[in-house]
Amino acid sequence: MKKKEIRPKRASRKELQYQHLASHSADRAPVVVYLSNGTRLQGIVLATDSYMVLLGRWQDDPQPTIVYKQAICLVTPLDTPVLGIDPAITAEFVPIYIPRTRKRR
């Protein structure tokens, strides 16, 4: 009879994402949020939800920004440099790669 292998339980992606955003929310330290369209947002994580992140400029911001988690690529502390992202690119200019397709005959 073969013995069943017992593996330690790994944290799921949702749990890791929740822990990461909860730590930023508890610290109230400024973060940089990079979106999938190339936009870079700066602020403080005020609250998180299953689907959204509430981002404010300061702790008592009367008009915070709601960002869908689906649109977020990366969340880093403000003082951490990110490799591969050019800081000279502004929110107005977002380079988009569009593959060329062959012309149909």
Rank of each mutant, 00 (worst) to 15 (best):
T39C: 12
D61I: 04
I96K: 11
I85T: 08
A47S: 15
D49R: 01
L78A: 13
I98T: 11
M52D: 14
Y51I: 03
P64C: 03
P95E: 11
L16M: 15
Q63M: 08
L83W: 03
A29M: 07
K69Q: 12
T80R: 08
M52R: 09
T65N: 12
N37G: 02
G38C: 08
P8R: 07
Y34F: 14
P8V: 01
E15F: 01
K4P: 12
G38R: 00
R13D: 10
T80Q: 13
I66Y: 08
S50K: 09
E5G: 04
L54Q: 11
A29C: 07
V67P: 01
V82I: 02
V53G: 01
S23Q: 11
L78G: 06
R10H: 10
L54T: 10
E15I: 08
T48K: 00
M1P: 14
V53N: 02
F93D: 08
T39W: 06
E15Y: 07
K69H: 02
Q17P: 01
I66C: 09
I6W: 01
A88T: 09
Q63I: 05
R7L: 07
K2N: 10
Y34P: 05
H20C: 06
P30K: 02
P77M: 00
P87W: 06
P30V: 00
H24K: 03
L74H: 12
I72C: 08
